[in-house]
């Protein structure tokens, strides 16, 4: 990175450190922080959508739809995350390839399962084995996002389902008395008011989601845990310009600081959102705010 880094064995102290911390390998480590943040930025809204859809389905008056919603919440919440991650990602990947195989290669006669191998025609591979490495990485990342969204969506669905029932019945009755239809009352009265009941549960979920991101590592995405372990392991001088003993403790300590400061920041932001949502609500918090302002 810097011009003086050409021969690191002659450097000492901070100059050595500045070279060490800017190697290509460390850059990949820093980029992986971005991967984690990107995962959170995409997964949180998507799982909220899954949760909203799940909660709406669960409280639907049409019975089969309600069963689907309730089954989704019960099944996904009941299965350990890791088991779900390991099973679902493989199943989803093979399912997509199987569908593509059926549509793209109808004339293919060989069996798809040959012993241990799962074999589809080359055109049906997802992504194509000829595509660039970054496409493979984006595909793997997307599978991870979908899986995270389904898991956390189920928890969010349960939280939102409860929040929807917590809105005082009198509010809905008043809406109906004003002549609103069921749908209008739902969108105009119920949904805006439910968030204040949902937020404590959702903020919990957000915290758990932040802490669950190292599961990415399980799915083969090279995340911060992978790089911390790889960079921290002891290095012999024959294979690197920067030999060092076992430094994993320091790398994992850096991860600890990262996660702690990130969750702290989240808490501050969530507190502010809570204050805003409480404003003007018929809850104990809303009442306290009103009195403070009088």
């Amino acid at each position: 990175m810097f011009s003086y880094c050409s021969d690191p064995s002659t450097l000492e102290g901070l100059t050595w450190l500045s070279c060490y911390l800017t190697t290509g390998k460390h850059m990949l480590f820093y980029v992986s922080f971005g991967t984690v943040l990107l995962l959170l930025a995409i997964t949180a809204p998507v799982s909220l959508m899954f949760g909203f859809a799940g909660a709406m389905a669960a409280r639907a008056r049409f019975a089969p739809l309600s069963w689907i919603g309730k089954a989704y919440i019960a099944v996904v919440r009941g299965v350990p995350d890791i088991a779900f991650f390991l099973f679902f990602v493989i199943a989803l990947d093979q399912g997509i390839e199987w569908l593509r195989h059926k549509t793209l290669c109808p004339e293919w006669t060989d069996a798809i399962r040959q012993g241990n191998d799962f074999l589809v025609c080359p055109d049906a591979k997802m992504p194509l084995s000829s595509s660039a490495q970054w496409i493979h990485e984006v595909y793997g990342f997307s599978l991870a996002v979908i899986t995270f969204a389904i898991v956390f969506g189920a928890f969010a669905a349960n939280v939102l389902f409860g929040a929807m029932r917590a809105v005082p019945r009198a509010q809905m009755e008043t809406a109906e008395a004003y002549g609103m239809s069921h749908r209008q009352a739902f969108w105009r009265i119920l949904v805006p008011q439910m968030w204040v009941y949902a937020l404590p549960g959702l903020s919990n979920l957000w915290m758990v989601l932040i802490k669950a991101t190292p599961l990415l590592f399980l799915l083969g995405v090279e995340d911060i845990v992978y790089w911390a372990r790889e960079l921290g392991g002891s290095k012999t001088a024959r294979f690197t310009d920067y030999p060092h003993p076992d430094w994993r403790m320091w790398y994992f300590f850096a991860l600890l600081v990262f996660y702690l400061s990130f969750t702290k920041l989240s808490e501050v932001v969530l507190d502010r959102i809570m204050k805003r949502l409480t404003h003007g609500q018929a809850t104990a918090g809303g009442e306290a705010q009103r009195r403070a302002n009088v």
Binding site: G24, K25, L28, S130, S131, F239, T240
Partner: peptide, 20 residues
């Protein structure tokens, strides 16, 4: 395109160098 899978943690057989 043939994708070569390796571990990248077993020098001198295979490892990740300083450039990543």
């Amino acid at each position: 395109v043939v994708r070569m899978g390796t571990e990248g943690a077993y020098p001198p057989y295979n490892f990740i160098n300083d450039a990543g």
